[in-house]
Amino acid sequence: MSWRIYLRLGRVSNLPTVWSNTLAGVALAQAPNAAWPVGSVAVLMVAFSLLYIGGMFLNDAFDRHIDARERANRPIPSGQIGAREVFAIGFGLLGAGVLAVAVHAFAYGAGVVPIVSAVVLAGIIVLYDAWHKGNPIGPIIMGACRVLVYVTAALSVTMHRGTPVFAGAALLLSYLIGLTYLAKHEGAYLAGKMPRFTLRRFWPLALLFIPCLALLPISFGSTPALLLDLAFLAWIVFTLVDLRRGAPGAIPRTVVRLIAGISLLDAVLVGPSLGAALALGAFALTLWLQRFVSGT
């Protein structure tokens, strides 16, 4: 089986956003100026990468009948790979991801709580993949997947459950609900049934701006923090202006750009630091990888 098919199924171009989520979850849980647990971050990045790719495989497996109508060029409906194999790999990767979190928890004395969180994350991934088409709360379930990356990463390095972790998770959830709402329209767009863009129809996209607005007052105390927040805001505006113009390919292009923007939000939440610099690098790397492997 061609490795290119696996790359497409796994949407691996978006993996840097998973890595920056891991960095953000660890950073928000740590005390200010605390040393980075490099070993923990590396293991957790691998664990969440496995969970993400497994979820993407299962997404195609569960959507194979819909893709046959709307996206016949996807690997399963086009006959490049069988659904049974995709299901097996997807569930196998989810199991490997949970196992990696468990190994880390036992190796670093984190206890069973992060393992339970990882199991819940895997369950939410399966729930979303199996029940996101026509599900009105699908965007919330999708957002919960990324939020649980924050939470599981935080629990894996400390039992701290303070305001930064929960506040960051809430802002990430808001952004992802707006992003997923738009992504739900991609199938209709590709089928030539995309509704005209109106504020009344697409009002959930306003949720994309909540993190910027919520963090803006805090950012005024630091020029670098303010620049990060404004850069994030500018990126959202740039992507939505392209969508509003209705140019060819606007929906898929906007979705992948907003996916890359997850790492920008991570940088803003982490604040000016090495972690923010790495998150910005993840943003740039995602955009570059999306040129070779589709992010949707």
Rank of each mutant, 00 (worst) to 15 (best):
S2A: 11
W3H: 12
I5Y: 04
L9T: 06
R11C: 10
V12G: 07
V12H: 04
V12C: 14
N14M: 09
L15N: 08
S20I: 06
G25N: 07
L28T: 08
Q30R: 14
A31N: 03
P32A: 13
S40I: 05
S40H: 05
V41P: 03
V46K: 04
S49H: 07
S49M: 14
L51H: 10
Y52L: 08
Y52F: 15
G54Q: 09
M56N: 15
N59A: 10
D60P: 10
A61L: 11
A61E: 11
D67C: 07
D67L: 05
E70Y: 10
E70W: 01
A72K: 04
P75I: 02
P77H: 07
P77N: 09
R84E: 14
E85D: 06
V86N: 01
A88T: 12
G90W: 07
L94G: 02
L94C: 04
A96C: 11
A96L: 15
G97T: 11
V101T: 08
A102T: 14
H104L: 13
F106L: 14
G109Y: 05
G111D: 11
V112N: 00
P114C: 04
V120D: 08
L121A: 15
A122Q: 04
G123W: 12
I124L: 14
I125E: 08
D129M: 01
D129A: 13
A130G: 00
N135Y: 01
I137H: 03
P139N: 10
I141Y: 02
G143W: 05
G143H: 06
P164Y: 03
F166I: 00
A167Y: 07
G168F: 00
G168M: 03
A169Q: 03
A170G: 04
L171D: 07
L172I: 10
L172G: 01
S174T: 04
I177G: 02
G178K: 03
T180K: 01
Y181G: 03
A183T: 05
A183E: 13
K184H: 15
A191F: 09
P195Q: 13
T198Q: 03
L199V: 15
L199F: 15
R200Q: 13
R201I: 01
F202E: 06
L205Q: 10
F209C: 09
L215Q: 14
I218K: 10
F220N: 00
T223Y: 12
L228Y: 12
F232V: 01
T239S: 14
L240K: 02
V241G: 00
D242Y: 12
R244P: 00
R245E: 13
A247H: 05
A247W: 00
G249C: 02
G249L: 05
P252L: 05
V255R: 02
V255F: 06
R257C: 11
I259R: 01
A260P: 06
G261A: 15
L264D: 09
D266S: 09
V268S: 05
L269Y: 04
V270F: 02
V270S: 00
P272H: 06
P272E: 02
L274I: 13
L278T: 11
L278C: 11
G281M: 06
G281L: 11
G281V: 08
A282R: 04
T286D: 06
F292N: 02
G295C: 10
T296I: 12
